[in-house]
Nucleic acid binder design. Structure first.
Lengths: 358, 358
DNA sequence: CCACCATGCAGAAACGTACCTCCTCACCAC
DNA sequence: GTGGTGAGGAGGTACGTTTCTGCATGGTGG
């Protein structure tokens, strides 16, 4: 019994197209992929027959043959017990969205894979490269990927001398220092910090930058740290911070929800913002433009980071890089709103608050 | 030159493991996959050798052979011109996160694919099935996927008689009606709506439910619609709604940012919430627990939806379903806070409420 | 002692594509 | 006529698995 005849059970294959078009498999492949030396007549004829048969090349076969799958992993490290903290905050959502768009524009797609998943999941999908968000020091997944020759680009400086292909990050120290200066310029005498107790690079760098700044200006550090993955813990920590005897007159919150947490805590203690308490938090949420008062936010530019990470990764995959690791620093953006200015820029139509002296 | 010898350029293959273990390829495959009839001694020996060589089976080859890739598409339809509105709001983020976890728990991974991407992207990845979020009526991508025999489960009732494998959705009409009753019970005389001008099912069903309710209770509809994908348009629309001569004394906002938009607009017009204006908005954000005042939100339970969608899809892929479409309705959850109660429950000094369980 | 069966394993055929190697013309210059 | 050349296309192999089929071997019942 001939193996090339008989009803195709599944989809039409390249063989069927070749047979229907009266040409060879090679010709079909070349015509559809724009390779080889073929007259336009043959090319369009093959294309037409393929369309008519509803032919879709098998991604698996192509991947097996070429070694390229067109898939990039998007790995998120987990915090605490949460199985998967993807998009816990707006940052991840924005970053993932930008990365997806950028990848798509270059013909790649993103596969979401948590760093903690077991081997079988990782090896069940053929990856051309991987984006790792905020890898832990000496992350075993990253090291294994690199050992297998898969390009890895991380969002956030990799700790523990991870041999990644490249990374993209903000200059967190500079951002924090600039923001603290901004608060000091606005009149802050004692600036507090709401931070996390996790060991990720972002938290660590930001916290040490704060400590250095305190040392430089001779202020005693005033901070509370909490498990950032717990949505309630932030509110409690904000409360603790404002309940301290050495209560700060300005606070920077490292995480997205800290702004509302601190606003709520301030209300509970009868503190007016910004008159009694200056506020800045790191967030990508547009909600802070419409709070009372609007809150000054530090944006880490996740869109730019997501885009940059993917570009670097794909360049490395396609051999467009020079072979050396690429390190790219994305500037942050301090969006100044009423919460960090003693004199509100323009407080709406409603009756202005008490004419607080400058 | 022998083809089976020579230095393997890439990773070790199953052949190398077989050679190193002194068994046949079949034995290696069986040992590693727990099939065939092999004594435990052989099995563990093979496994050990494979580990030593750092053997990882080729996902592409396995997919080609078995026809299953272990990949599920996660498709998001786009709004307006935005290339990709994935996770524009917290809903998508939560939903995607839950779907990813659920898929992973059953050995699948999710690939993010916008519905608008061209064919080449879709056919470049072997999908076992696809989750479609809020498909447009007669979505061409969905119809094509179904034609190719790929199971499709949608988040949101599919319009246009799309022949999907199943769908999961909230009962949006019931949710809106219940919520309007809640506002009426709290004393609302004229309830306004802030809605979108897009044609997606959620917006459409919610709006018509509102109109029906108005008809039933004999209230003139008071609503403003705006392009939901534009973050600024919401604030403007909220302002318009409260600037109307027939200003409502209660408002329901269909989209996540509407809560803060409406709070800000209320402040501009000197309206107190909830005394002068009752407020509810549809949101998954925990930020509304800490606004001033806290805002009552309608949760669509994206976690449960994401999980359910994936379960249905995988059941269909693995033939665990009965072959008929599965339709599942997830109840919504009205989280009542101060903004929708004339008498604020308790304006305490104590730290805010505990975790918002699923 | 032979047929029989379960056990343990090997051979080899696919899966569908890409691409390298070659073949066959027709045409032209010499 | 002959060799060269370039266009147009065919054959066949390899990518790395899974799995069907089959072949030994040793133990067991008749």
């Amino acid at each position: 019994m001939s193996r090339s005849t008989g009803r195709r059970l599944g989809r039409a294959g390249i063989r069927d197209v070749a047979a229907a078009a009266g040409v060879s498999i090679t010709t079909v492949s070349d015509a559809l992929n724009g390779k080889g030396r073929l007259p336009d007549a043959t090319r369009s004829h093959v294309r037409e027959v393929a369309d008519r048969l509803g032919y879709r090349p098998s991604a698996a076969a192509r991947t097996l043959r070429t070694g390229k799958s067109g898939l990039l992993g998007l790995t998120v490290t987990t915090y605490g017990d949460e199985p998967f903290t993807f998009t816990e905050f707006a940052y991840f959502a924005e970053m993932a969205r930008a990365a997806t768009s950028a990848a798509l524009a270059r013909g790649y797609a993103l596969v979401i894979l948590p760093a903690t998943s077991r081997h079988d999941v990782w090896s069940n999908v053929a990856l051309d490269g991987t984006v790792v968000i905020d890898p832990a020091d000496g992350d075993p997944v990253v090291t294994e990927l690199v050992r297998h020759g898969i390009p890895v680009v991380s969002d956030g400086r990799p700790g523990g001398a991870l041999p990644v292909t490249g990374w993209v990050d903000n200059d967190h120290e500079a951002a924090v220092l600039g923001l603290l200066d901004h608060l000091a310029d606005a009149g802050a005498r004692r600036i507090g910090l709401l931070t996390g107790n996790t060991t990720d690079t972002y938290t660590r760098l930001s916290t040490t930058a704060y400590l250095h700044w305190c040392e430089r200006v001779g202020q005693d550090p005033v901070y509370e740290s909490y498990p950032a993955h717990d949505p309630c813990a932030g509110a409690v920590a904000a409360d603790r911070l404002l309940a301290r005897p050495d209560r700060p007159d300005a606070v920077y919150g490292l995480f997205d929800p800290n702004g509302t947490d601190l606003l709520a805590a301030a209300r509970r203690y009868g503190l007016r913002v910004p008159e009694d308490l200056l506020l800045v938090c790191c967030s990508e949420s547009t909600l802070y433009a419409a709070t009372e008062p609007p809150v000054t936010t530090l944006s880490l530019k996740p869109r730019r980071i997501g885009t940059a990470v993917v570009q670097i990764l794909i360049d490395a995959i396609e051999g467009l890089d020079n072979g050396r690791p690429v390190e790219q620093v994305i500037p942050t953006d301090l969006i100044v709103r009423a919460s960090s200015q003693r004199r509100p820029p323009r407080t709406t139509v409603s009756p202005p608050r008490g004419p607080s002296g400058d």
